[in-house]
Design a protein around this nucleic acid. Structure first.
Lengths: 399, 399
DNA sequence: AGCACTTAAGCAACGCTGTTGCCGAAGTGC
DNA sequence: GCACTTCGGCAACAGCGTTGCTTAAGTGCT
């Protein structure tokens, strides 16, 4: 029952312990949402003593992250006090940097959108103009999201940036972005962090979307977010956390071979799922495309033993019923009981990108940083280890 | 740097903290192997203070799990004292329950085999005769592995059992074992635990093999163990830990569709990798089988972004060069730099099964138990939470 | 040889964690 | 109005890693 999954280089001191439990409680508060949750429920769910939960929630309340919100009905004694997350206690910027446009979201601590922006933009123009636009747009976003009293949004924890792969989320650097070699190896994370004055996290668009979906209350522990738009990709969530692979390459569903002797693909292979599926779409055969997509989804379900398939992307959203039914039919034909749904959340990627920043607050493994490097301890001279100083309320620095 | 990955229901108290750090140190001692590792290196690798490492290693030495073993060369001051794991401090039984035979291994704390046994056996005979044989064989194994002074092997922590899927590692119950419906739903883990008087962990054969490979020193963080024998399956290791999926079904590589319009398969699909690959083997076309297998491996590498492909199983081992070269050629043709190797470890599954018991000692997530159940805290009335009592030296009970 | 210097590892005091035992607060139900 | 139940905070406590200092055990220059 103890369960702190190991992670090489992850010695735990008291500060880490405190942070771990605080994150755990915060996550339960987040999951409880509007309903809230009582101290005793928190104690039951965490396995901690009620007294420990009292101390932890007292700290969270002092930091402004949680607040009391009414009481439950009595069951014969003193009624339980309900605690809730304070959504406005902190915010995160999410940026979806796509081939033809930039979508920005400002999300509160619960991940709910507070402000949104969209600007056309050509990713192929390269880092300089694109990042300049991004920085300017973020500033506009934050300026436009002032509270009625004119105060800037409190506690901006950082910015999450989602863009098409391939890239390396650990180093925060894109690889050969399709059609835009100018991005290759450009240190996006560092450059943006310096210009925004905020911590920046970079991830692949599908991973960000999947993360956002994974953090919704009631989300299944494992699912695949299958995105069919101008391309085909997937975000894999296994055991509640996105599966990124060693080089952020996981989820490359588009170039799965599903036809050994199929037509050659630009990737060097034959019979790639993306090529076959998009070809069907191009000739107007949406049910055929759905069947092919369903085969890819079935492969995913069987290989990873996941609980659900979520479909998204412009092509799917243009005919959601056709794709949902087509994919579900393929799974049913293989006697796989996995439910299929269309994830129609608007701005899913931009909001998911914001979750890149929010997730660590709730104890979900952050995507960035070495994370193991085998031997590199990066013995922290900077600030006390495991401090949750991220959440002290001075994070509104922007310029 | 804090990094204790979250796990719902996983509140951490001091006892858990202690266990976590002890497991971390034990894992580094294990990884260091014969070379050993000094206290200061342990401190650097864990991020803990040298003094904390001193205390932890003192406890481990008191428990008999670690011992001093010589010193390093001086670098201008007092030479570092080398610490090593004591292999004989604890043991684990590993059982590979295959369709036609039972292989047993007794492994020491490092996972090295101390004793081995093999008996022919028909899995299809069902639980009663098979488990009776298993229990008798385990007793023979332990009796035969006495030290020169006649003492039974110290600290038998439990027994790991690996068998063909499908099954549910959480409940410890097989599903519809191919060709043997008598096993369906039989509580193997509970029944064996009661009859052996030992904790029992159940897992799929490929998962066990992959776990064993993952725990070898120098193993890559992520790899796929692809097993081609009478069937085709895979064990997936991602980030150092086996990926089992929600119902132990992950790794079902055999029924990945790689030929949309291929021949029908018993599973209900068409063009399944297993059917195509085995058909090529049956007609003597091993290079063809290797190419097909390579396509399946390439799909894995791309989907999961893993570091290496390990091949195993009787069919592969009968012509290792052909398969290794064939698979590697397919990957190279797709410009995937992933190395391909043949994992020729004998008794890989039985030893991997022993690792099912050993892994938790080193802080790797154990495969059994609810692990999250969303809300079920199973508040532990039994023994103090997180106690490492497993390793107190009275574990030799067998009757 | 002898001395200064460097590095490793243990001892003692300390701060901070969750835990335990107890008590007041705030309801229900007879 | 009183007994009972349940919630949640206060205070004392045990145990964790940390800090400051001391001792052990080498190297290298004089």
């Amino acid at each position: 029952m103890t369960v702190m999954t190991r992670d090489p280089g992850g010695g735990a001191n008291l500060s880490a312990l405190r942070g771990h439990n605080a994150a755990l409680v915060l996550d339960l508060l987040r999951t409880a949402g509007e309903d809230g949750i009582s101290r005793l429920e928190l104690a039951e769910r965490t396995g901690l003593t009620p007294q420990a939960v009292s101390k932890i929630t007292a700290r969270l309340r002092a930091e402004g992250l949680a607040a009391e919100a009414g009481r439950r009905a009595s069951t014969g004694g003193k009624p339980r006090t309900v605690l809730r997350l304070v959504p406005a206690a902190a915010h995160a910027v999410g940026a979806h940097l796509d081939r033809d446009g930039l979508t920005l979201a400002l999300a509160d601590l619960t991940g709910a959108p507070v402000a949104l922006r969209h600007t056309p933009l050509a990713l192929a123009d390269g880092p300089d103009p694109v990042l300049a636009t991004l920085v300017a747009e973020v500033r506009e976003l934050l300026a436009g999201a002032r509270a009625p009293d004119g105060a800037a949004p409190s506690g901006v924890l950082g910015a999450g940036v989602a863009m098409p792969g391939p890239l390396d989320h650990r180093r925060g650097v894109p690889g050969r972005v399709t059609g835009a070699p100018v991005w290759d190896g450009f240190p996006v994370r560092e450059a943006l962090a310096a210009r925004l004055g905020l911590p920046v996290t970079l991830d692949k668009d599908t991973n960000a979307a999947a993360l956002g979906l994974a953090l919704r209350p009631g989300a299944p522990r494992s699912f695949a977010y299958v995105h069919l738009g101008t391309g085909l990709g997937a975000g894999l969530v296994v055991g509640g956390a996105p599966l990124r692979g060693e080089r952020t390459g996981a989820g490359e569903l588009g170039h799965q071979t599903v036809q050994l002797d199929g037509p050659p693909c630009v990737c060097g292979g034959r019979g790639c799922l993306e090529a076959l599926c998009l070809a069907a779409v191009a000739r107007g055969d949406l049910p055929g495309a759905a069947r092919i997509l369903g085969t890819g989804a079935a492969n995913l379900v069987r290989l990873l033993d996941i609980d659900r398939v979520l479909l998204g992307g412009a092509t799917v959203l243009a005919a959601p019923g056709v794709f949902a039914d087509g994919v579900a039919a393929v799974l049913a034909g293989l006697r796989l009981p996995t439910p299929v749904e269309v994830a129609s959340a608007p701005h899913a990627v931009a909001l998911g990108a914001a979750h890149l920043v929010l997730a660590p607050v709730f104890g979900l493994a952050p995507p960035g940083e070495p994370e193991s490097g085998r031997g590199k301890p990066e013995s922290g001279p900077a600030a006390g280890p495991g401090d949750r100083a991220v959440l002290s309320s001075d994070g509104r620095t922007i310029g």
